[in-house]
Simulated assay, not measured.
Amino acid sequence: MNLNISGHHLDITPAIREYVETKFARVLRHIDNVIDVQVILSKEPLKQKAEVTLHVPGKDIHAESIDDNLYAAIDLLVDKTDRLVVKHKEKQKNFDNTAAKHLAS
């Protein structure tokens, strides 16, 4: 799994990189087969924006968040991404169970 962190109008310091890596470790516990993760942090006048794209087999999961503080934007992004990953996993689980029911009938 590759974790790519890039910044637009923002330098990615080791502290920011470490913060993003530790926060996304929580998300990656919920899903096993992540191909790669791209995180884009950007600074615009009066707001900080964080975006993520998770590439998993069969789907790309994308989320973004905007806040005044970059660390708060990252926290919101991780929460959104975690919910989307759990939702994707539930859909996969329900799909797999439905197929087994039809085969058994």
Rank of each mutant, 00 (worst) to 15 (best):
N2M: 08
N2F: 09
N2P: 03
L3R: 02
L3H: 03
N4I: 01
I5Q: 00
S6L: 02
S6V: 07
S6A: 10
G7V: 01
H8M: 01
D11C: 01
D11P: 00
D11W: 02
I12G: 02
P14A: 05
P14S: 08
A15N: 05
A15I: 12
I16T: 01
R17H: 10
E18P: 00
E18T: 04
E18C: 04
E18G: 04
E18S: 11
Y19E: 07
Y19H: 13
Y19V: 04
Y19N: 09
V20L: 07
E21I: 00
T22P: 03
T22F: 10
K23Q: 11
F24M: 03
F24Q: 02
R26M: 06
R26N: 07
L28I: 13
L28K: 11
I31D: 10
D32T: 15
V34S: 02
V34F: 02
I35N: 11
D36A: 06
D36Y: 12
D36T: 01
Q38E: 15
V39N: 07
V39G: 06
I40V: 15
L41G: 02
L41P: 00
L41D: 00
K43P: 01
E44I: 08
P45V: 08
P45S: 13
P45A: 09
P45M: 08
P45Q: 12
L46M: 11
Q48D: 03
Q48P: 04
Q48E: 11
Q48F: 05
K49P: 00
A50M: 07
A50N: 08
A50Y: 05
A50R: 04
A50V: 00
E51S: 03
V52M: 04
L54T: 11
L54H: 07
H55G: 05
V56E: 04
P57S: 09
P57R: 06
K59D: 00
D60V: 13
I61L: 13
I61T: 00
H62Y: 11
H62V: 13
A63G: 07
S65L: 08
S65Y: 05
S65D: 12
S65N: 06
S65T: 06
I66K: 12
I66D: 12
I66Q: 14
I66H: 09
D67F: 01
D68E: 15
N69I: 02
N69Y: 03
L70W: 02
Y71M: 12
Y71V: 01
Y71F: 13
A72C: 01
A72Q: 12
A73G: 09
I74N: 04
D75F: 03
D75I: 14
L77V: 01
L77F: 10
D79Q: 10
K80D: 14
K80N: 10
T81K: 05
D82V: 00
D82M: 13
D82E: 14
R83N: 09
R83W: 04
V85L: 02
V86N: 10
E90S: 12
K91G: 11
K91P: 00
Q92S: 09
K93V: 01
K93N: 03
N94Y: 07
F95S: 15
F95A: 15
F95Q: 15
D96C: 04
N97Q: 14
N97C: 05
N97F: 02
T98L: 14
A99G: 10
A100M: 08
H102G: 13
L103V: 15
L103M: 15
L103S: 14
A104E: 15
S105M: 08
